[in-house]
Amino acid sequence: MGPREIYPNAPLALAVVELRHTVTAALSEADQAALKGFLAEVFPLARPAPGAVSMTVTPAGVTNEQTPPSPRYMTRDNTASVTFRPDAIAVETTRYVRRSALRELLRLAVSARQEVAPADGLTRVGVRYVNEVRADIEGPADWSQWIIPDLTNIASLEAGANGHARSWQGMVVFGDQQQGVVLRHGNLEGYAVNPSGDLRRPTPNPGPYYLIDLDSFWTPEGETPTLDWSNIESRYDAAALNAHGLFEQLITDKYRREVLRRDQ
């Protein structure tokens, strides 16, 4: 696998690697302290991730339950984090450089988890890239200059007196349940990744953008492998490269020349 071109003006707003594993008990305070010590050189800040709210409907009514916060550790510049949930490890960054750098953060997170409170098995490898494609447009039809017509031709449709399509969103699934890529796309306004969230990111002007959200994944078939780096590395690389290859097919040469390769 050779090096891929690093665009000076890439549209990537967020990169996430999620390793799902067999469910474990909640990490104790001692476990969390040990994790912090293990990660301190790269992720020195302990900043718990908020728990999720789940809704349960019963004959007696609807109840909302808040799950406990998950241990999360962040870099000092607040551009990368690792979160340990009872069923997953998630590494996120808003300052993605290349696949190998994110891979090293993932390796560190797996080593910490397995050193402190091991999980028994690997159930999914997911690599997600959230891109906000921004370019000069006067109307939705202009996206065809930057994004391939297969995604943007809907702009030419007309609904009588209502005129042409103004906005659209879609989802495309490649592959099967074991391995594939889920593409979510559409022309939107504002941001896909909140600039004022816990993870800091550059803040472009909040105008129109084209979303290219790629979730590339692998799941085991049959036997559940152990949560060891030897079972993760090649699958992470394959998932990331599948997403990269699809992204390159979704953009036009004009977008590469006039936007991606333009120095910021």
Rank of each mutant, 00 (worst) to 15 (best):
A52W: 01
R76F: 10
T252Q: 13
L246T: 02
Q114M: 14
E221K: 13
T203P: 12
E41Q: 11
V173E: 15
R257C: 05
E248R: 15
I212V: 14
L260A: 04
N9S: 09
E104A: 12
L151G: 01
L108R: 11
F247D: 00
V173K: 14
G190V: 07
E223W: 03
T56C: 02
Q114E: 14
R256C: 10
Y73C: 10
P225D: 05
I89T: 01
Y7A: 08
P225Y: 07
V181H: 01
E92F: 09
W168Q: 07
Y96I: 06
Y209T: 01
A88S: 15
R107N: 11
A109Y: 11
N194P: 13
D142Q: 05
T63H: 05
A112F: 00
T152C: 08
L105Y: 12
E132C: 01
A239R: 02
Q177T: 09
E189N: 11
G126S: 14
Q264L: 09
G2Y: 00
V53Y: 07
G126T: 06
L14G: 05
V110C: 07
P68H: 15
T79W: 06
F174R: 12
P44N: 07
P86E: 01
P225H: 05
V127A: 07
V133L: 12
T203H: 11
E233H: 04
Y129E: 10
E221Q: 14
R128F: 12
D77N: 13
V97M: 02
D136V: 14
R95N: 10
V42A: 11
R235K: 06
L19N: 05
Q178S: 13
R103D: 00
I148N: 12
P11K: 02
A88P: 04
V173C: 11
L27A: 12
D31Y: 04
A34P: 00
E258H: 13
Q66K: 08
S196F: 13
R257N: 12
R235E: 01
S70R: 15
L260M: 08
G190Q: 11
T63C: 03
A80K: 07
Y236V: 00
V116D: 06
R98P: 05
P44C: 04
A49C: 08
E158W: 01
P86V: 06
D253M: 01
W218K: 02
Q32M: 10
V82E: 04
A46C: 02
L45K: 10
V259N: 04
F84C: 02
T56K: 14
A240R: 07
S81G: 07
P204H: 07
A243N: 05
L45C: 10
